[in-house]
Design a binder for these strands. Sequence first.
DNA 1: GACAGTGAAATTTTT
DNA 2: TTTCACTGTC
Length: 772
Amino acid sequence: MSMDFIPQPRTCPSSQEYLSVLNPEQRAAVEHHGSPLLILAGAGSGKTRVITTKIAYLIGEKNLPPYSILAVTFTKKAATEMKERAIRLHPEAKNSQIRTFHSFGSWFLRRHTEEAGIDASFTVYDDDDMVTLLQKAVLGLTRQEAIHFAHSISRAKDYCLEPNSQQLSFIDETPNFPQIYQAYQNRLRETGNIDFGDLIMLPVLLLERKPEIREHMQRRFQVIMVDEYQDSNVAQFKLLQLLAGSNTYVCVVGDDDQSIYNFRGAEVKNILSFPEHFSGTTIIKLERNYRSIPQVLNVANDVICHNKNRFDKILKHTRASGDTPVLAFLDNNFDETDFCAQVIQNAHKQGIPYSDWALLYRTNSQSLTFETEFLHRKIPYVIVGSLKFYDREEIKDALAYLAITANPKDEVSFRRVVNKPSRGIGEKTQDKIVIDSRNYAKNSLLGESNLLESCRRIAKDSTKKAKEGLTTFVSTMDTLIKLIDQGQKAAQPLPVEQLAQQATNNPEISTKTNATSNTNNALPDEAPKKLSYLIEQLTLLSGLEEYHRGQDEISGTQRVANLQELANSAALYPLSRDGLLDFLDHIELDKSLDSRDQEETDAVTLITIHNTKGLEFPRVLMTGLETGIFPRSDKQETELEEERRLFYVGVTRAKDQLIITSCKKRFRFGKTDEMYPSIFLSEINQKNIKIIGEKPIGFCSSTLAKEGNTIHPLANRWKKGVRVFHDEYGYGYITRSAVIESEYVIIVQFDSGAEKRFMPEYQNHSLMVSEE
DNA sequence: GACAGTGAAATTTTT
DNA sequence: TTTCACTGTC
């Protein structure tokens, strides 16, 4: 991780200084000790400040060893920022564990691979890899089904449910789901690798079953803090419980209004029931918002108060008055792109830096038009979170070669590249090799299977073409493995020191720090021993480069350049097994981060709203506020409430300026769809927002009648849930009704998927209540 | 086993 | 519009 390279500030504030900037509640939270602590912190109330200050305070004032502090959060970006800020307050914080939950899981498992029954050089399978493996573990699944079950398995792991759990039906009611899960799990263990869910679940199981590991961890971490606690899932909650010994100080921070990951297994009840699980809990509320101007908070409050399932709380504003947020109605998404670009450029002319701006959207796909336009206008931007780079075919291929180099049992990566570029090794041959490897593992006393060994065996009685192909592949892999092992040898001298250091009570000044210094002190060998060298060799030897060079010429892509960039990004890692694993971890757990260490550039941030959690920006453009996009669907009340919380999160990112856009038309799937304003827009009180552009017909902020209260003459016949038929659109249900400027309006969700708005009074016979 | 041609589906959100 | 999974032919 990049954090090891963050320059330390010349001067650090004294504890007097950093405590004096806190308000009484924040200060109480920092100084609190002796019982579990739950901090209920509204948006922008300075909770990251509290956590980082608390870390500095514990190290500086309470003389706690930095490595005994564990602070976890959810997104990599938030973790990085937390670490940076903590280090600014106290340089020793660099030796504290400040990580995402998943990277903590990885850290933990790397130290306990044997007990966990996984390969010492394990890598992490992503969702795609899960699907590939599942299709091989359970034959006959279509891709769709495999995606479905892979999803269910992930959910099961979020709840820490094993294949034999009685509660699995709660996740997926398919009768043979437990068998499918079990088959997948067996196959996964055969590869020696793990998936994302395992990063949390395996540590939990290990801590449950191995008292000595648990006790060691509980001694190790005297303080555990969790940020964004409202988004923890059951497995993460269990992990926290197991890590916390009787003497561990536990402090969690969260806000139920910002819970936006329920779809991924997050349980708001974790935060609600925290005091029950940690007896004697002290609760501190942070209700003063320091981030946003009052006008922004008004908009946020207008909307969030429409949620029924929430604690009533008051966000008190502390800042001086600013500009009223703007709601811009635009004709179509190209106008939207233009408008946003224009706003940013105009501001730039007046001296407002690009980096003041964040452009928010609901789905990653929305970023594309902005990217094109910004490139065109030469507006610098950075994209956060889209899998852009690491999701590219050529990059995934190269990474698969690397994964096999690390772990030759990696079936998924093996299948991905054994025949790429084409070597005449089809699926049949692949199956043979994998089966051979699995049989070997079962029959051999050694128990170690190895796909490369199996390739050699199978090659013997294969057709000429396949034989040649296999030989080429195996010799490529052999060379790569030799390279990395030579590198490892070169890096030997220091790991001894590392062991010595571990003996002294400070187990992991991360392997990386040492490994990096290894390279610097490396043996006086010829070439510089960087991991980039391995990647360069890989792309050449495997034939990937040549293959993609051809592709580049045909379709004008940049694939060879991308491969080179991947190699460059590995320059910070040593050519060794540890270096390779670090690199792969870094990529797998941190796809959001740009491969280049983010230089301080003046650029607009393009980001999904989910990814903004924990971040703030001086100026925010929130785009695509249209029904069907945001909220995506309003089928279910609970889902709508989560979308509303997401809106709340987006709005409360803004410090000084907020602009919201909504289009009447949107071009997608090769055609233009008519769009309607998001329901959230009508929940904003008229006096709190400045509307520009032509209002869509029938739109009026904050006069949309609440459901059930409608007393319009038409309300009885045309009410929510009624089945209707339309001449053109067919059958559908009324999903919403309202009185808008004294007109009765309904929204119909048609079976065809279309969603339309009608005024029944004027529909005559094209729309009627179905007698079906 | 490779490849060209087809038809249908596609956009949640993340580690 | 683009992409990807599936089918049939060589």
